[in-house]
Design a binder for these strands. Structure first.
Lengths: 173, 173
DNA sequence: TCGGACTATAGGACCACGCCTATATAGGAC
DNA sequence: GTCCTATATAGGCGTGGTCCTATAGTCCGA
């Protein structure tokens, strides 16, 4: 699991509460990582437990205190260890390809449906990434350009999927 | 979860034991689905429990009896239901993109390492799929061609990844 | 002859993760 | 006036999935 590391990475950019983190996940890194709110809070307390983060409690009126989490030196060390560690092999899993593999037992028009559904999903994904890219601009610093490249990666794959779908629809539709 | 459905799909192609299924997962559908041995056996007994599969016990000498699992009519119905159901949204998760996003805190050569590691992995993936495709041939029936298209999908994405990496290495290496 | 791979099953423990719920207040929409 | 959203936390429950272990015989190569 690298949920822990995703949180550490975000805490390294700036100190955050669990609530802030959930927003960061949804708004900033949603195109390649996501996290349930409950799991984010659990990960945070695990990080504090392990000495990788520290809590600063800021009381508020009328609502629970903000628990601002700061990354520690140990946390930064662990983050760097992860960043430079060789990628652990992640098994591929695609529900769509599984359906496609077993689709021969379906009538032809059902296969066509499967493909057109996939096309709709891929198109939406492409447009979402496009909009994000347009909102972010080109990026001036090296850091910004590296972060933006996660978007261009997603776009490249969405493009590849759409192209592949076109040849598929020509052959099977 | 569609582990259940992946197993049903394979059982629909031919009756199998848990052991056979594990081999099918590793050899046939590994490029888009994988399964732990323990989980396969648990899934099988769940399917039998739910009436979606039936067991035929074939005793053997010197080793445990083969428990050959046959898909039932109810199983085929469930398989069809899944195949035609709209795709449930699967959140994207990429450890590599996460690392890339947080890589700005690393020295430049470490970022280059990250990219070249990824290049190696993508190249291997591409070659593996290529070899599989070469071993399978072009496919004569519609069913064969549909199954083979899961390979061409993988190849398209591997190609896209390699192309993207090339522009990345030109910009950041 | 000894160790390892193959055939075949299955239980136990643990973990990551997702859904649902609870609590408490403020402010805006309808 | 009521309902929804935002702010902020956290526990509980269930499940899908991985790893490790146990059993037990055969067959093959070093």
């Amino acid at each position: 699991m690298s949920m822990k590391h995703a949180v550490l990475g975000l805490l390294d950019l700036s100190p955050l509460t669990g609530y802030d983190l959930k927003k960061s996940f949804d708004e900033t890194v949603n195109h390649f990582w996501s996290g349930d709110q409950a799991q984010i809070y659990r990960t945070l307390s695990a990080l504090v437990n392990a000495g990788l983060a520290e809590v600063e409690v800021v009381p508020q009126e009328g609502r629970p205190a903000r628990k601002i989490h700061h990354i520690t030196d140990a946390g930064r060390a662990e983050l760097d260890r992860w960043l430079t560690a060789p990628a652990e092999p992640a098994p591929e899993r695609s529900e769509f390809l599984a359906k496609l593999f077993f689709s021969p037992r379906l009538p032809d028009d059902a296969v066509a449906d499967l493909l057109s559904q996939r096309r709709a999903a891929a198109t939406t994904a492409w447009e979402t990434l496009r909009a994000l890219e347009a909102a972010e601009g080109t990026g001036t610093t090296r850091a910004e350009r590296l972060r933006l490249s996660t978007l261009s990666n997603g776009l490249a794959h969405a493009r590849a999927e759409l192209d592949w779908l076109e040849t598929m629809e020509r052959e099977f539709a």
